[in-house]
């Protein structure tokens, strides 16, 4: 089957920032994204866990797929939100079936 090259951008960010990040993605022209719960983890800011949390604590993972030529603009938009916050931004190569959707 024919596949098309795309970029998969994953942003693990503090839960209180989720809406600001997804707003920035939408403003940057991303046509879709997926928000995933993250169970827990560890990093430069110490350990954290989702267990038992009541407020908007912990982290979420936001994943989106875009055409490679739009990557730089998207990363600028993401960086404007995450630059001062705890989190990880990663970009990986991906293949998609329906290129017109991204």
């Amino acid at each position: 089957m024919q596949t098309h090259i795309a970029k998969r951008v994953e942003i693990v960010i503090e839960a209180p920032l989720e809406r600001r990040l997804t707003d920035a993605l939408t403003a940057a022209g991303v046509t879709g994204y997926t928000v995933l719960p993250v169970l827990g983890g560890s990093g430069r800011s110490g350990q954290w866990s989702r267990d038992g949390q009541v407020g908007r604590a912990g982290m979420v993972s936001v994943v989106c797929l875009i055409k490679p030529e739009r990557l730089d603009g998207l990363l600028d938009a993401i960086f404007a939100v995450v630059k001062k916050h705890i989190g990880v931004v990663s970009v990986t190569d991906a293949h998609v079936l329906r290129a017109e959707r991204f």
Partner: peptide, 19 residues
């Protein structure tokens, strides 16, 4: 507070140490 304010501080004062 340990529910509402920590979330607000992460947005408004990200340089503050949550620990």
């Amino acid at each position: 507070s340990y529910i509402a304010v920590p979330a607000a501080m992460r947005v408004a004062l990200p340089e503050a140490n949550p620990a």
